[in-house]
Design a protein around this nucleic acid. Structure first.
Lengths: 148, 148
DNA sequence: TCCATAGAGATACCATGTATCAATAAGGTA
DNA sequence: TACCTTATTGATACATGGTATCTCTATGGA
């Protein structure tokens, strides 16, 4: 749950102007706790602040991605639609996305992931520089009825 | 390295017609050992078989994805461009992509990955159903000069 | 050889971004 | 407070990647 004033402060410190469209888009973005597409965001903006242009929405989204306030996530890997966005806290971490309700949980299993990367480096002789890991599953409240 | 006749057999068994455009696209696809974009493939096709339509290329690509002969991969996670394709063998596995030359190596570190998934399940109470993991790095031959 | 129909090419369309450009408004300064 | 520089805006056009539709062709079974 990122907080708006802190982000505005950062923008200010980095020389960005604190404009009304930016504040508005930022507020909409952080108010969403689940992944959203650019189209969904644009629809919200059009409804609540119809004078803001589409390009501005994309520009702000891009800015927030570069600042680490928003991450692009990859879902529906097998279909055409691929991008969604998600407001999240800074620093590197991964997402676990509920395939039923969309709830997102972060995780940081760094030790096991590092072990995995080291194993892969040994087996392949690659030098691993980065990775992308996303998990899909059922959150606790969506598991009812299917005990197994 | 998937082999064309075997894939054609599978298509045939599954009731698909073995048409010349399909064969042609399939051959082009499996002849590439590195990730390629739809635009690159379309360019190759236009050059070598200019009567094949763009829609057919996408349709065939989609069919091959559904059959598991081709996978969509996600690179340049932080930029707009996201999709590329890669001909690869069946069954679930992951890719390690050289960020310098594009060389792709598969890996199957299933045990460690399973351990990671189990840890995550314990910590988050999610039930994990699927995952997407891609690694970027330098292949052995692109590591020269940067010892560290 | 014939025939039903899956698949083809052409074309228009859609979705997601990006580039361009003149007009506007932040926010530092006099 | 008024002024000025320039980052940012909205509008518009464009680029890219993929899909829908529609008519015609040609695959492959009878």
């Amino acid at each position: 749950m990122p907080d708006v004033p802190a982000i505005l402060d950062r923008l200010d410190h980095e020389g960005y102007r604190l404009t009304w469209p930016r504040r508005t888009v930022l507020e909409k973005v952080v108010s969403r706790t689940k992944p959203f597409t650019s189209a969904e965001l644009w629809e919200m903006i059009q409804h609540d602040a119809p004078t803001i242009g589409r390009a501005t929405v994309f520009r702000t989204l891009d800015l927030l991605c570069r600042m680490g306030v928003v991450q692009r996530i990859h879902r529906d890997a097998e279909s055409g639609r691929c991008h969604a966005y998600l407001a999240c806290d800074e620093r590197h971490h991964h997402h676990l996305i509920c395939s039923n309700c969309g709830k997102v949980t972060d995780f940081h299993e760094d030790k096991t992931l590092d072990a995995l990367v080291r194993e892969i480096e040994q087996h392949t002789a690659f030098r691993v520089q980065g990775h992308m890991l996303e998990l899909m599953g059922l959150c606790p409240s969506c598991q009812g009825g299917v005990p197994s």
